[in-house]
Computed example of a mutant assay.
Amino acid sequence: MIDPMSDETTSRSARPSGRPRRSSADVLADAAAELFLEQGWSRTTVDQIAQRAGVSRGTFFNYFESKADMFWLDLDATALGLGEALRASSGTSPVRRVEAALVQLAAEHPADRVPWALTQSDAMGLGDDLVASAAVRLVRIRATVASFLCEAAGAPRGEAGAEVAASALLAAAATAVVTWARAGVRRRPLDQEVAEALAPVTDGLVADGLAGAGHLAGG
Rank of each mutant, 00 (worst) to 15 (best):
G40W: 14
G40P: 09
G40Y: 13
G40L: 13
W41L: 02
W41K: 00
S42A: 14
R43H: 12
R43W: 04
R43T: 04
V46W: 05
D47G: 02
Q48I: 01
I49S: 10
I49K: 07
A50L: 02
A50Y: 03
A50Q: 04
Q51C: 09
Q51A: 11
Q51T: 12
R52Y: 02
A53D: 00
A53M: 02
V55C: 14
S56D: 01
R57L: 03
T59F: 01
T59L: 00
T59C: 05
F60V: 00
Y63D: 14
F64M: 08
E65R: 12
S66L: 01
K67R: 11
K67H: 01
M70D: 02
F71N: 06
F71A: 06
F71L: 02
F71P: 08
F71M: 07
F71Y: 14
F71H: 07
W72T: 09
W72Y: 08
D74L: 04
D76L: 03
A77V: 05
T78N: 12
T78Y: 00
T78M: 11
G83W: 08
E84Q: 13
A85I: 10
A85Q: 10
L86W: 07
R87V: 15
A88M: 12
A88N: 10
A88E: 14
S89V: 11
S89F: 09
S89K: 04
S89C: 11
G91S: 04
S93G: 07
P94R: 13
V95T: 06
E99L: 07
E99C: 11
E99S: 11
V103C: 07
Q104F: 08
Q104N: 05
L105P: 13
L105R: 15
A106E: 03
A106V: 14
A107K: 06
E108V: 04
E108N: 13
P110H: 10
D112N: 12
R113K: 15
P115V: 03
P115E: 12
A117F: 08
L118I: 09
L118W: 15
L118M: 15
Q120Y: 09
S121W: 01
S121T: 00
S121Q: 03
A123N: 01
L126N: 05
G127I: 07
D128L: 09
L130F: 05
V131H: 10
V131T: 14
S133P: 02
A134H: 10
V136P: 01
L138C: 01
V139T: 11
I141E: 11
T144R: 13
